[in-house]
Amino acid sequence: MSQAEPAPAAEPTVTLNGVSYRISQLSQAARQALAKLNETETAIQALQQRLAIYQTARTAYTQALGAELPSKPSNR
């Protein structure tokens, strides 16, 4: 029984404005910019997750406050 050779891995690419570029063919400056872009995207995702947590907490605290307030507001 012979083993099939593994298919070659696709070369990594980046797509910008609908055009795909092989990473191996990018200049050093383009690779550095791509790395910074990836870092920025990761930071944005982390911030969006934190924002979702705070928005959920705000909703819970608003509901808890509503439950603690008297049913009739006092007119002072």
Rank of each mutant, 00 (worst) to 15 (best):
M1D: 05
S2C: 07
Q3K: 13
Q3G: 09
A4W: 03
A4M: 11
A4L: 13
E5H: 09
P6V: 15
P6Y: 05
P6R: 14
A7N: 11
A7K: 10
P8N: 10
P8Y: 04
P8T: 15
A10C: 05
A10T: 14
E11V: 05
E11I: 02
E11L: 06
E11Y: 04
P12E: 07
T13P: 00
V14N: 07
V14I: 10
V14Q: 08
V14S: 07
T15R: 13
T15A: 14
T15Q: 12
L16W: 00
L16K: 01
N17W: 09
N17C: 11
N17G: 09
V19D: 11
V19H: 06
V19W: 05
S20I: 03
S20C: 07
Y21V: 13
Y21E: 01
R22I: 02
R22Q: 06
I23V: 15
I23M: 13
S24F: 04
S24T: 13
Q25W: 00
L26C: 11
L26D: 08
S27K: 02
Q28E: 10
Q28W: 07
Q28H: 11
Q28D: 08
A29Q: 14
A30I: 06
R31E: 01
R31H: 02
R31W: 02
Q32G: 03
A33R: 14
A33F: 03
L34M: 13
L34K: 10
A35F: 06
L37E: 07
L37I: 05
L37H: 05
L37C: 05
N38H: 11
N38P: 00
N38A: 07
E39C: 03
E39T: 05
T40M: 06
T40I: 01
T40R: 09
T40H: 15
E41D: 07
T42M: 00
A43K: 04
A43V: 06
A43L: 03
I44L: 08
I44P: 05
Q45D: 09
A46N: 02
A46R: 05
A46W: 02
L47A: 02
L47M: 03
Q48H: 13
Q49R: 14
R50Y: 00
L51K: 14
L51P: 00
A52Q: 06
A52T: 00
A52M: 03
I53W: 06
I53S: 15
I53T: 10
I53G: 15
Y54S: 07
Y54Q: 09
Q55G: 08
T56C: 03
A57M: 08
A57I: 14
R58F: 15
R58Y: 15
T59L: 09
T59P: 01
T59G: 08
T59Y: 11
A60S: 11
A60L: 08
Y61E: 11
Y61M: 14
T62Q: 15
Q63P: 01
A64F: 00
A64M: 03
A64D: 10
L65F: 01
L65H: 03
L65K: 13
G66A: 11
A67S: 08
E68V: 06
E68G: 12
E68M: 13
E68T: 13
L69W: 00
L69T: 12
P70A: 07
S71L: 10
S71Y: 12
K72E: 12
K72Y: 14
K72L: 12
K72R: 08
S74C: 13
S74Y: 12
N75F: 06
R76D: 15
